[in-house]
Design a protein around this nucleic acid. Sequence first.
DNA 1: ATCTACACCTGACCGC
DNA 2: TGCGGTCAGGTGTAGA
Length: 306
Amino acid sequence: MPELPEVETVRAGVAEHVRGCIIRSVRVHDNRSLRRHNTDPEDFTLRLAGCRITGAHRRGKYMWLTLDDADGEPAPYALVIHLGMSGQLLVKTNDFPVEKHLKVVLELSETNRQLRFVDQRIFGGMFLDELVDDTPAGQHSAARFLVPASVKHIARDPLDEFFDPGRVRTRFLRTASGVKRLLLDQSVISGVGNIYADEALWRAKLHYDRPAKTLSAAQFRALMKAVQEVMGEALAAGGTSFDALYVNINGQSGYFDRSLNAYSQAGAPCPRCLAAGRTSLIVREPFMGRSSYRCPHCQRTPRGAR
DNA sequence: ATCTACACCTGACCGC
DNA sequence: TGCGGTCAGGTGTAGA
């Protein structure tokens, strides 16, 4: 469910509310949420208990918490968290009623609060993972270039200071795939999901199946700009939410859904066409086993596409 | 090496 | 009221 702006909202909330806290104990209510530890939840629990949370980091839709071990030394591993489609990370007081889909609870020391992982569909999950070096070429190695091994294949996201549009362009040029497929490929550009892919394509006036390699340099720049703008605006609004499933760390949902131009707008007039005195209705079409939304007038079906 | 299809889950909603 | 079908914002991986 959450895309980059939602995950960043949650990451910032975690950094603000639980950084510095010591994890007193861990309770796992559903082993399936532990991903790779699901056959050995004790390993997860034992290694995490007693650690201090020293930071909250993110790349694309992956988030991880860095830790100091019980001796105060930086742990060589981090707690990786992915919210999947329905995951929530909440900070609650101990006495707050248990959520229906509560999966994992981290009890925080010297406070009456807990970090709770709630996940209805179990598409999300958390696990401990070794930190590895991921220093960008030309940079000096530093602690801030450590990432969990399982996150290393994820491309830098559009809000990352080392985001490199040139690398994205290279990938665009050497594939026969359509542009939306590339936007959703987290190893090409990360953080983009179905909502913001459709919104960025609408802004850039591109059809989802336009072969990526046929974009002009100007069209590619316009698309990258659209992706960065739509994510920046969504982040400023606290993310997108259609229902109660997505909430930030306090349990509040974002407002960006009021600003959607294409996504979920099937049957509604395209705002850009409307402003030009034309009526063109947004259509929903199946693509990659899910839905794509576009304006049939400003996002014309390309020749050579399906 | 690429790329596609599917599995992994639960729940809301709609038409009958 | 219940039943079956459809839909949902993601990702790892098996197999083509």
